[in-house]
């Protein structure tokens, strides 16, 4: 039952933390128009730019091909793995999640390769070694261990995934069920819970953050539309 408590706590911290962060970002004004130009001039254009950033990492592609390659492998793999994991939480399993299953099997490896590549850069490139903090290394280690423990369950020491599913459906219905006994599963889940807890306090905030970056999410139309933040508007009435 420790795991049941752990996951309730982790979920609350993750959800609460993200809601807090995002509302904080929403509340904080962007007083000036600072899109990195050339920028789209319309809202639709901005949506396209953001989509390219989130799905294709457009700017990173311009910045560093190596990093981009590994980043795509990691995030692409991660996305598939997470979609595949939805089967533990949905009953009946959504039909598109079924479609992902065959790809998802390899996605774990892809994700691990990406992570290894990203980690390698932190040792091999002098500039990146210079900027890396212990937490940067730990974050990669954590994700890599999640991936390895997950892959081991799949290929080395099978877990009772029916039982896992029962456990999580139980959590969802506030009717806790026992978790199958398996050291690898315990490891996998403890690491995942730590990841969820760390998320809202760490650089993982890049995931929500990218949507709030003024240099990417503002349309370039300052001459056509006046942009005024509430605190700046106050200066107007004073003078």
């Amino acid at each position: 039952m420790i795991f049941a408590a752990l996951f309730y706590a982790a979920f609350l911290i993750l959800a609460g933390g993200l809601v807090y962060r995002i509302s904080d970002y929403l509340r904080t004004p962007a007083p000036l128009k600072i899109p990195t130009t050339p920028a789209p001039t319309t809202g639709g254009g901005v949506a396209l730019r953001m989509t390219r950033e989130v799905l294709l990492f457009e700017s990173l592609f311009k910045g560093s091909l190596w990093t981009w390659g590994f980043a795509m492998l990691f995030h692409g793999g991660l996305a598939l793995v997470l979609m595949r994991h939805l089967r533990y939480f949905t009953q009946p399993v959504w039909s598109w999640v079924d479609l992902v299953q065959p790809f998802g099997i390899y996605a774990g490896f892809v994700m691990a390769i990406g992570l290894a590549g990203l980690w390698g850069r932190r040792f091999l490139v002098d500039r990146i070694r210079y900027i890396s903090t212990p937490s940067d290394h730990l974050m990669l280690a954590l994700l890599l261990m999640i991936a390895i423990s997950g892959l081991s369950m799949k290929f080395l020491d099978h877990t009772d995934i029916i039982g896992v599913k029962a456990f999580f459906l139980g959590l969802e219905h506030f009717d806790p069920q026992p978790l199958p006994a398996s050291p690898l599963l315990y490891l996998h889940l403890s690491l995942v819970a730590s990841l969820m807890i760390i998320f809202p306090f760490s650089k993982l905030l890049h995931a929500p953050g990218v949507f709030f970056s003024p240099s990417r999410n503002q349309p370039d139309n300052p001459r056509e539309h006046r942009h005024l933040s509430p605190w700046a508007a106050k200066l107007e009435s004073e003078s």
Partner: peptide, 17 residues
């Protein structure tokens, strides 16, 4: 006062690009 500052200080992943 500046969303840019807050988001930028939070979001960097030290990717080195």
């Amino acid at each position: 006062k500046y969303r840019s500052l807050k988001v930028y200080l939070d979001a960097c992943v030290h990717c080195g690009a």
